[in-house]
Nucleic acid binder design. Structure first.
Lengths: 209, 209, 209, 209
DNA sequence: GATGAATGAGGGTTCATTCAT
DNA sequence: AATGAATGAACCCTCATTCAT
């Protein structure tokens, strides 16, 4: 598939990837211009289409690459809080936000690949996403100590709530800090405090004591 | 402004609106093609721009139309639960979900108009949105009985949690039922039950008794 | 030909003519927009093309009208200096400039009709121009007292020189005062003085004493 | 800048230049059609804009090219008469006329580029023109022996007259010989004689003896 | 006579993709 | 492997002109 590209030396690959990520992040799939890409990567029209058959497959490659990239980052920071789901979720939420802001372009591509691309692309990417998250997420919750939940609380439901809520909260932060990545990093402590406050309320509703 | 269009007989208006909504929903503002629109609506290039001066103003009209459309639907279903915020939110969440599924394209346009359009368009739409939601939302929360919250719970924060959570839950349902609008309507009771279960947990964490 | 238009009451005719003159003067034949014309004249698309079959013939009508208009103006100011060609030419030159500036749009149309229009239009207008100027110009020089020229000076040639020179001088003034019609009218005396200076030199070369 | 175009082989460049010159000369900047150009040059839409970024810059290139072309022609015929301004002007006038007729389209473009183009284009071209004419024109008059003028004659005014007159005369010849370039070249001697006659009259009015 | 809705060709420009070199 | 010249469809939009009313 992409072997022509993968045979390139690392530096050139890196350069091209960076340019593509930048362009796709900034302008979205359809508006991204292969012309801009080759100009900024300093490569020729022909060779781009030699590496990646067409724009579509180039984009799929980039999305995949971004995926792997963030996954590896996630793996670099193993979550320490194992027993207490609330603490773990806060850790996870903050990590996510940090990664969003450490790799804003990669994050933007991943977020928007599922929203702004043409239908067929969207579908293709969606299936990959789903496959991956099915492998990844269960591991996250497997060591949870579910004896702490109060009776009458369906643990799965509770986790659902927490996950969904954190997802939504994360997105709200993302929106609020859009274009102010630096500020966000400075506010990490404040954000974590907020996470805690919210979690405290939820915890009260779920835990037994 | 749009009088040329509004003078048209209802059938033709409907047809054109449907085509535009479909195109803008599927491809977004920038990638929507006026060529596709005229082809599918069976009208000429010239007349489209006779009705709506340009693509931009066509889009604004469509967004406005979508707005009115959902607003009217909302008004059709006045929320009955007044005192208990949890019940009211459930009602609201389910209503929202129903509307999402009854008008998936309209909903998509409204959701993405504020996210994926070029900056200037976004700003123009945002101001309209804000004006409307300032009229609409306060009424929603004004009669809430906040004595019911337990001490130590910041009412605003609590409402934030509920709103965010419902938003996220709604989106998950949306995703799950994508393309299966009928099933969704049949499952409304099941969904409401789920809403209740989730809410019960949250309520426990927030209410005093 | 234009009888539909000519049957209109004078006010309506006037209004339409003014609008057309303005549009054609400002934007030239090809860039002039019949849309703009009907909008500003407050008439309908259909009726404009009912009066004048098409844009081409509308333009020809306007050019003709402009022609008649300036010709009439010329006739209003019969040149007083009869014997002395130099004085008459100065009078004529200044009159011309005044008319250019009294009717800048009409003048612009006439000037540019012969330069900026499509080839076939240009040719058609040119023939009319030539026919008219052949009737008009000889009268201008018929009462010239040619005994004043010094021997060896071909009177016809001399008049050619003067005519050409004045033409060129007039155009230079036109260019210099482009967009500053008011200033020009204020400078009329200064301009006449310049005309005199130039003429004095030429006169010295042509007259006998 | 125009390197894509300049890398073309001479024949193709020539062909495209000719077509562009023809189109711009005949229809002016705004009404010239890039569609017509590509059709007549037998090239594709894409490649025209690959050579020249856009219509504007294509036009600027063409104007520049025309400029260089006539300048080179001027240089081929160095003016021999140095002291006597009259003789020199005749030489110059005739040369100009010859060039007008040898390159009617190029001449038309240069003449009208400064008159009929949109304002911003005009300004850009004007600055280039001025820069060039400031290098070129002074040389033309610098060796003039102005002691020959009779007292009371303002040398500058005199030269103004001569220049303006020649300009006007040239334009009349141009008009007379329009479409009959061959005849004109055959009549060069007759024309020069006429120039002489005219000049003789003017000289008499300006020179002292 | 008078309207203005409707047409569709044409405007300049950008684009992903191909292919001879 | 690598280049970039070349293609032509597609982009939004404007236009003179027609014709049913």
């Amino acid at each position: 598939m992409y072997k022509n590209f993968l045979n390139l030396n690392q530096d050139k690959q890196k350069k091209i990837l960076e340019v593509c990520i930048h362009e796709f992040a900034e302008r979205g799939y359809e508006n991204a211009s292969t012309n801009t890409i080759i100009k900024e990567a300093g490569i020729s029209k022909g060779i781009l289409f030699h590496y990646f058959q067409n724009k579509r497959s180039l984009f799929l490659y980039i999305v995949d690459y971004c995926f792997q990239e963030v996954l590896e980052e996630y793996k670099k920071y193993p979550l320490t809080e194992t027993g207490d789901i609330f603490k773990r979720l806060i850790e996870f939420g903050v990590l996510k936000l940090k990664l969003y802001h450490a790799y804003p372009e990669i994050s933007k591509i991943l977020l928007e690949a599922l929203v702004n691309s043409p239908k067929d692309l969207r579908l293709e990417i969606e299936t990959k996403y789903n496959r991956l998250s099915k492998e990844f997420l269960p591991a996250f919750f497997q060591e949870i100590d579910d004896t702490k939940f109060r009776k009458g609380v369906d643990t799965t439901k509770a986790i659902q709530i927490l996950t969904l809520f954190l997802e939504a909260l994360g997105q709200r932060y993302l929106k609020d800090y859009k274009g102010k990545e630096q500020e966000m990093l400075e506010d990490v402590d404040k954000i974590m405090d907020e996470y805690y406050e919210y979690m405290e309320i939820l915890k009260y509703g779920m835990y037994s004591s």
